[in-house]
Simulated assay, not measured.
Amino acid sequence: MKKIEPILDPNEIKDSIALFKQGNVDLDAWSTLTNNLYSRNSLLSFQNDWITFVNYCREVNVSPLPAAVTAVRRFVEHAAKTRKAASIKRYVITISLMHRVHSLPDSTRHREVRYTLNRLYQEKSDDAGQANAFMLSHLQALTAKLESSEKLKDIRDVLIWTLCFEGMLKRSELAALPYDAPRETDEGFVLAVDDQLIALSDDAKAQVEKWMTASGIFDGPLLRGINKHGHLSDAPMDHSSIYRVFRRAATELGLEGSLTFSGQSPRVGASQELAEAGKTIKEIQHQGRWKSPAMPAQYVGNKTASSEAMAKFKRKIEKD
């Protein structure tokens, strides 16, 4: 965690607390709060995690800022029912950050919360296991089943599955996509992810165009939440929403109970498809934007290469 100077002026603290207790605060405010030290993707993660916590606090009628020790502990226990250890850890980091920046006692440091976290981390120690692969055949079956639907949620979800698979997107990258990330260039239809342009298929292009027409989006985030009434949110999708989209994929395919897809599943499946097509680990690493070849090597079943790559990557970090 980067060193962020806390707010010290009592009036500024009061105004900032009032703002962030609303939950959905724009990224400019987050950037100012964190002294402009974080990237857009990191700010999006903070924003999404904080919205999740504030929404929970509203449901149980407690204050999110400052948050009582019991409120934080119960939130952690609630999140643990559906979220993995990494997500819970990220939630706690965000809650801790918000309290420290506002010069408030950090409830996450209380022994009651730490004990609960340690217990949950032990129970979820297998979370690091590899996600089930979301393969091209899965994508094709889902597209065939839902492509004629005019429901906004169906159009969005098919686009999410397609972009995540073809672009090998991380959840944070998916959530951060602006409305103009898919674009036409001299080289064809592409998806802009940070400073990289990823080629998309004609099918993906058609799905993007269908989504833009159905949603009416012309600014802001490309992919957004949809409530139970079918109304589109202005806010980007959070990690919980993305998780539900991939859980839905298994249900639609009749695989619920035998396979569990997550936001990581398309990266696993795409890596395996590329390996089958003859791509090298280095080429897969580049296409998936990994810093090390360790993960793609693990995904395609090359455990020796994965172990060697991870050891090399760790040595590089220690040297740096």
Score class of each variant (00 low, 15 high):
48 N>T: 09
28 D>V: 00
95 I>V: 07
202 D>Q: 12
235 A>Q: 06
176 A>C: 11
314 K>Y: 15
271 S>H: 01
112 E>I: 10
10 P>G: 05
153 K>E: 08
300 V>Q: 10
59 E>C: 14
248 R>D: 14
125 S>W: 10
159 L>T: 04
277 A>F: 00
85 A>D: 08
26 D>G: 07
159 L>G: 05
246 F>K: 07
113 V>L: 10
12 E>P: 00
258 S>A: 00
145 K>C: 00
192 A>Q: 01
97 L>V: 09
35 N>W: 01
235 A>N: 10
15 D>Q: 12
104 L>R: 08
2 K>T: 14
160 I>R: 02
131 A>F: 02
264 Q>C: 14
169 L>E: 10
53 F>Y: 12
8 L>Q: 15
22 Q>L: 00
312 K>Y: 12
264 Q>A: 14
301 G>A: 08
62 V>T: 08
68 A>F: 10
229 H>R: 14
111 R>K: 14
107 S>Q: 09
65 L>W: 04
201 S>T: 03
66 P>R: 04
57 C>I: 10
150 E>Y: 00
138 H>S: 03
311 A>I: 02
40 R>F: 14
135 M>L: 02
261 F>P: 07
61 N>D: 11
105 P>A: 06
88 I>A: 11
50 W>V: 09
32 T>Y: 08
112 E>V: 06
4 I>C: 15
256 E>G: 02
84 K>Q: 13
134 F>K: 11
149 S>C: 04
197 L>H: 01
96 S>T: 01
102 H>A: 04
301 G>K: 03
103 S>F: 03
169 L>P: 12
101 V>P: 06
301 G>H: 01
191 L>P: 01
